[in-house]
């Protein structure tokens, strides 16, 4: 049952992409900015998890929560310091700023702790279960259940809570949302907080699963999560989840077929194809712009 094994690997990888992609898509949905510093929030989250586990001796779940909280605050700080004053600037100015923030964080972390990688400590005894002939590690099961739980919580927040409804309102029409008495600045901060918390969770999960982390680890997963968000339809939350899973499975299948050197290329080929044939993404509607 080789294919089942690969499918499970693909879904595990894909759920990490999906968690990161959610932050991209939520922020884009609300302020139309591709936050290229988002991959760095993922990296910082991974390091916070690393320190919590190996230095402070915390367990997986406390480390996860700590990392999510710290990243939420970090994300809001980035927004308040770097992006807020550019709210009425051209989109290219905000985009360039995002790339600058990304480089600043990468090099800031290297400055503080050096560029050498760190080995994530084992937080779980890794047992394998035999499932229809496929070996499934307890870690893969954990990753999947944590990711699914986080996505369900996100869906609940976005659709059932007051703040979630306000987020959807702001993303559709910020001016009309103001007329309801919604404080748009606070809602934008909340969006950054939630998206960054998910990236922090993805960072800890990534560390536990792939064991090696370093200050530049956010670059490739960050770009791939961006591809996943575009694939699903940027700005659309279920799109980011599906896009992440599809991308993870495609990459794993490409490796399994013996083209593991082409794995990264697969993601970018998908990006190019989607931009040519369906720029609005899987879930996006083709909207005509009124002139």
């Amino acid at each position: 049952m080789e294919w089942l094994q690969q499918l499970i690997n693909g879904i595990s990888l894909g759920s990490i992409y999906a968690l990161i992609a959610l932050g991209y898509t939520m922020v884009y949905g609300i302020i139309k900015l591709i936050n290229f510093a988002h991959g760095e929030v993922f990296m910082v989250g991974s390091f916070i998890g690393f320190i919590s586990i190996s230095v402070w001796g915390l367990g997986f779940f406390p480390a996860l929560l700590l990392s999510m909280t710290a990243c939420a605050i970090f994300g809001v700080l980035i927004e308040r310091i770097a992006y807020k004053r550019l709210r009425n600037a051209t989109r290219i100015a905000a985009l360039i700023t995002a790339i600058g923030v990304s480089l600043l964080i990468q090099n800031g972390v290297i400055y503080i702790r050096g560029a050498q990688p760190a080995a994530y400590p084992d937080v779980f005894a890794n047992t394998s279960y035999n499932f229809f002939g496929a070996q499934i590690s307890s870690q893969a099961i954990l990753i999947l259940s944590v990711s699914v739980a986080l996505m369900l919580i996100l869906q609940f927040i976005v659709h059932k809570t007051k703040i979630g409804k306000a987020m959807r309102a702001v993303s559709h029409d910020a001016e009309a949302a103001k007329l309801m008495g919604i404080n748009v600045d606070n809602i934008i901060s909340a969006t950054f907080a939630i998206g960054s918390a998910l990236a922090g969770a993805a960072g800890v999960i990534f560390g536990v699963y792939y064991t090696k982390i370093d200050p530049l680890m956010g670059v490739i997963p960050g770009v791939k999560a961006f591809v996943a968000a575009v694939l699903g339809g940027i700005g659309i939350i279920p799109g980011a989840m599906v896009g992440g899973l599809v991308l993870g499975v495609v990459e794993t299948v490409v490796s399994a077929l013996g083209f593991s050197l082409w794995r990264d290329a697969a993601a970018f080929i998908i990006l190019i194809l989607i931009l040519i044939f369906r720029p609005a993404g899987i879930f996006g509607k083709n909207t005509r712009e009124k002139v």
Partner: peptide
Amino acid sequence: ISHVPEGRRVFANMTVEENIELGAFL
């Protein structure tokens, strides 16, 4: 003071009920 803007500006991506609910946001 409530303002019903020109062109209605309803939240098209949300249900009628959710729109009304948002009116009571504060």
